[in-house]
Amino acid sequence: MSGGVDSSVTAALCKEAGYDVVGITLQLYDHGQATARKGACCAGQDIHDARRVADRIGIPHYVLDYESRFRDAVVDDFADAYLRGETPVPCIRCNQTVKFRDLLATAKDLGAAALATGHYVRRAVGPGGPELRNAADDSRDQSYFLFATTREQLDFLRFPLGGLPKPAVRAHAERLGLPVAAKPDSQDICFVPNGDYRRVIERLRPDARVPGEIVDLSGRVLGRHDGVIGFTIGQRKGLGLGGEGGGETEPRYVVRLDPARARVVVGPRDALACHALTVKELNWLGADTIPPEGLEVMAKIRNTAPATPARLFAGEDGWATVRFDQPEFGVSPGQACVFYDGDRVLGGGWIVEAESAAAA
């Protein structure tokens, strides 16, 4: 129970259905203004809200201190990823580690029969066991963030909101008299105050900002920057180049980051075209193994991107290669690539390298 409307309704619906429900809230972080920031979760007011909901529906409520686990598995990983020139997805790491590994183990230790969450995703039981599927409401679907969920975890997890649109969830909250019925949804990254992730990184890694050069694909210096952590693949605005570069008018984009040399490489949009990519830590939820000739899938390179046709080839030790039917743009190491067959999540992995025109 994060203190938001989704997890609150989940708990209330489970209670209404006659289950013996225990509410668990995780204390994940506490750094000043972040605990009171509108749109945050898992700290300060949100813990208070979760307790009020538990009191309202008549269930026991416990707060578990997971701050050290959260920092080790999520926050430190987030900072280090940016130093490597990657663009991390901390919400996936949080689900993968703190929630569906640590909290799930705690739930089992407590003798629970299942762990229910407020995620917008569906769990279905197929011929081979539990399957992970898109939410019925595509606009709320969170399956991208849950690709790392294992088969064993799926067997224990339940997602009561997966078949509901958001307005129906709020209607349930009002019907059940929950004090968070009108509470806004959480926004951005929970542990980043005011959305300024660079400040968080600098606090965690004081030597993070290393000035360097902004160069084009040929290595020609176009300008300077005060730290690679301020840039992401595909970024167009905020490069600070102005009219430099020989009067060129074609828009420039960040196409590659080179932290070892403190370089930001920019180029035209075409240089962002990605024909193939490599992933690590492949989590496979498909019914069959991936054949040597590859498997046709729909692949999504970020949560906000549409899934596009691709062929997936399995490698060794959790590595895999994805080849797109048509080029994808703005593929960034550190993001996830998630694979689908219709509305079923087949699995996914962490993007390590993109094969693109800029790689030459």
Score class of each variant (00 low, 15 high):
residue 5 V to L: 10
residue 7 S to P: 05
residue 7 S to W: 04
residue 13 L to Y: 09
residue 15 K to C: 01
residue 19 Y to N: 12
residue 19 Y to Q: 13
residue 20 D to Y: 03
residue 22 V to G: 04
residue 24 I to R: 03
residue 32 G to L: 13
residue 37 R to V: 08
residue 37 R to Y: 11
residue 40 A to H: 03
residue 42 C to N: 05
residue 44 G to E: 09
residue 45 Q to R: 10
residue 48 H to G: 00
residue 54 A to D: 09
residue 54 A to R: 08
residue 60 P to R: 10
residue 68 S to E: 15
residue 69 R to N: 05
residue 70 F to G: 00
residue 70 F to Q: 04
residue 76 D to P: 05
residue 80 D to K: 10
residue 81 A to C: 15
residue 83 L to V: 13
residue 84 R to D: 12
residue 88 P to Q: 11
residue 91 C to G: 09
residue 94 C to A: 10
residue 94 C to D: 04
residue 94 C to W: 03
residue 97 T to E: 09
residue 98 V to F: 02
residue 98 V to E: 02
residue 102 D to E: 14
residue 103 L to Y: 02
residue 104 L to H: 00
residue 104 L to G: 07
residue 106 T to P: 03
residue 107 A to Q: 09
residue 108 K to L: 15
residue 109 D to E: 10
residue 109 D to R: 08
residue 111 G to N: 03
residue 111 G to F: 01
residue 114 A to L: 08
residue 119 H to A: 02
residue 119 H to I: 05
residue 121 V to F: 01
residue 123 R to W: 05
residue 124 A to K: 07
residue 125 V to M: 00
residue 125 V to L: 04
residue 127 P to A: 10
residue 129 G to E: 07
residue 134 N to K: 12
residue 143 S to R: 10
residue 149 T to F: 08
residue 149 T to I: 14
residue 150 T to A: 02
residue 155 D to A: 15
residue 155 D to E: 14
residue 155 D to P: 00
residue 156 F to P: 07
residue 159 F to C: 13
residue 165 P to F: 05
residue 171 A to I: 00
residue 180 V to P: 00
residue 184 P to S: 05
residue 189 I to T: 08
residue 191 F to K: 00
residue 194 N to Y: 03
residue 199 R to Q: 07
residue 202 E to M: 13
residue 203 R to E: 11
residue 205 R to W: 12
residue 206 P to R: 00
residue 207 D to G: 00
residue 212 G to A: 11
residue 212 G to P: 07
residue 213 E to R: 10
residue 213 E to P: 05
residue 214 I to Q: 04
residue 219 G to P: 10
residue 222 L to H: 10
residue 224 R to S: 14
residue 229 I to F: 05
residue 231 F to P: 01
residue 231 F to K: 06
residue 234 G to I: 14
residue 236 R to V: 09
residue 238 G to P: 09
residue 239 L to M: 04
residue 244 E to L: 15
residue 245 G to V: 11
residue 253 Y to D: 02
residue 255 V to D: 07
residue 261 R to P: 04
residue 262 A to W: 11
residue 267 G to I: 01
residue 269 R to F: 03
residue 272 L to Y: 06
residue 274 C to L: 06
residue 276 A to P: 02
residue 277 L to Y: 00
residue 278 T to I: 11
residue 278 T to A: 09
residue 280 K to D: 12
residue 281 E to S: 11
residue 286 G to H: 04
residue 292 P to T: 02
residue 293 E to S: 14
residue 294 G to C: 12
residue 298 M to G: 05
residue 299 A to E: 07
residue 299 A to Y: 13
residue 301 I to T: 15
residue 303 N to M: 14
residue 305 A to M: 10
residue 307 A to I: 08
residue 310 A to M: 10
residue 315 G to S: 00
residue 318 G to K: 03
residue 319 W to N: 12
residue 321 T to I: 07
residue 323 R to S: 11
residue 326 Q to A: 15
residue 327 P to S: 02
residue 329 F to E: 11
residue 330 G to H: 12
residue 332 S to Y: 04
residue 334 G to I: 03
residue 334 G to F: 01
residue 342 G to S: 06
residue 344 R to C: 13
residue 344 R to Q: 15
residue 345 V to N: 11
residue 346 L to Y: 01
residue 349 G to R: 06
residue 352 V to S: 09
residue 353 E to M: 01
residue 353 E to D: 10
